[in-house]
């Protein structure tokens, strides 16, 4: 059975990718997947060699044939996304691909056409396979692209006999986040001890609970505000959520990133040791 772990935080910039990249360096026999498809950064640290590129078609998009249009206004009346002006001018960037306009147009002036919304890549890195993607500028359907990344990751894992998929999740609580965590075996929530970090991580823990996914917590930059760190520990104790470790604020993380390396490759210092300890505990949770 292939196990799946998603690293997530609610708030961005809490150290998800830094930590996940180190996990990728520490894990054995795994596939790494970058589910932050609209701002993917994992490849910067893992330096992948792309083996296979796949076009991603999002939802179809409405295309108007002005010659056939009789200006009846049905498309404008029925579109719920504001993609049509009252004079039937189409704004494709607002189209969500529902195809209602095509359905209601009495003269067949609207067609739903395919559009390329991004690319997905199967790559090889010094830490094994990496599945990643790039959503084109401003595209919709990013949740679907995340689903594609996860599907490819599972295929690669099965083909190559890997037993773990490590997923770097996106920020927020919406469609990409839900898509990156549904059905996984464990979610690791990275919390930064700021009021924002706490606020957003509670929301993401609620999302995990909503979808009945087991979660554990790791506190990053715990020494920035020890009082807040204490209240996170207490919150987790009350909620019965395991805290798998605390990481100090350490410029090593940025220095490693500047050098295109993961923390555990770059240094043997305190941060690196703490990450290794966290990984041991996460691995145990996954068995």
């Amino acid at each position: 059975m292939v196990r799946e772990l998603t690293v997530i935080s609610g708030k961005g910039g809490c150290g998800k990718t830094t930590l996940t990249a180190s996990f990728s360096a520490l894990a054995r026999n795994h596939v790494t997947a970058d589910a932050d498809v609209d701002a993917a950064d994992m490849h910067i640290l893992l330096d992948p060699k792309v083996l296979r590129t796949e076009r991603f078609h999002g939802l179809n998009i409405a295309k108007m044939n002005d010659e056939l249009c009789i200006n009846c206004g049905k498309c404008y009346e029925n579109c719920r996304y504001g993609a049509f002006d009252p004079d039937n001018t189409l704004h494709p960037e607002k189209c969500e691909g529902c195809a209602v306009c095509e359905l209601v147009c009495p003269v067949g002036a609207i067609d739903m056409v395919e559009r390329e919304a991004g690319e997905a890549y199967v790559s090889e890195t010094r830490f094994g396979p990496l599945i990643h993607a790039k959503l084109h500028a401003g595209e919709e359907a990013s949740g679907k692209l995340v689903a594609l990344v996860r599907e490819r990751a599972r295929q690669v894992a099965e083909d190559q006999g890997k037993d773990l998929i490590i997923i770097d999740g996106p920020p927020g609580t919406g469609c990409t986040v839900i898509s990156s965590m549904t059905g996984v075996d464990l979610v690791l929530v990275v919390i930064e001890p700021s009021l924002s970090g706490i606020h957003d991580s509670k929301r993401i823990l609620d999302v995990a609970k909503h979808f009945r996914i087991p979660s554990v917590v790791c506190i990053n930059k715990y020494d920035i505000n020890k009082e807040n760190t204490h209240s996170i520990m207490e919150f987790c104790r009350n909620e019965g959520i395991e805290v798998v470790g605390k990481l100090p604020y350490d410029e090593t993380a940025t220095k490693a990133m500047m050098g295109g390396k993961t923390v555990v490759e770059f240094s043997e210092g305190e941060l690196s040791q703490s990450i290794k300890e966290i990984w041991r505990r996460v691995e145990k949770e996954l068995i």
Partner: peptide, 14 residues
């Protein structure tokens, strides 16, 4: 704005 470059960010910046 929300982070990212997908629809929520685009809707905010438009």
């Amino acid at each position: 704005s929300p982070p990212g470059t997908a629809c929520p960010a685009v809707e905010t910046m438009r």
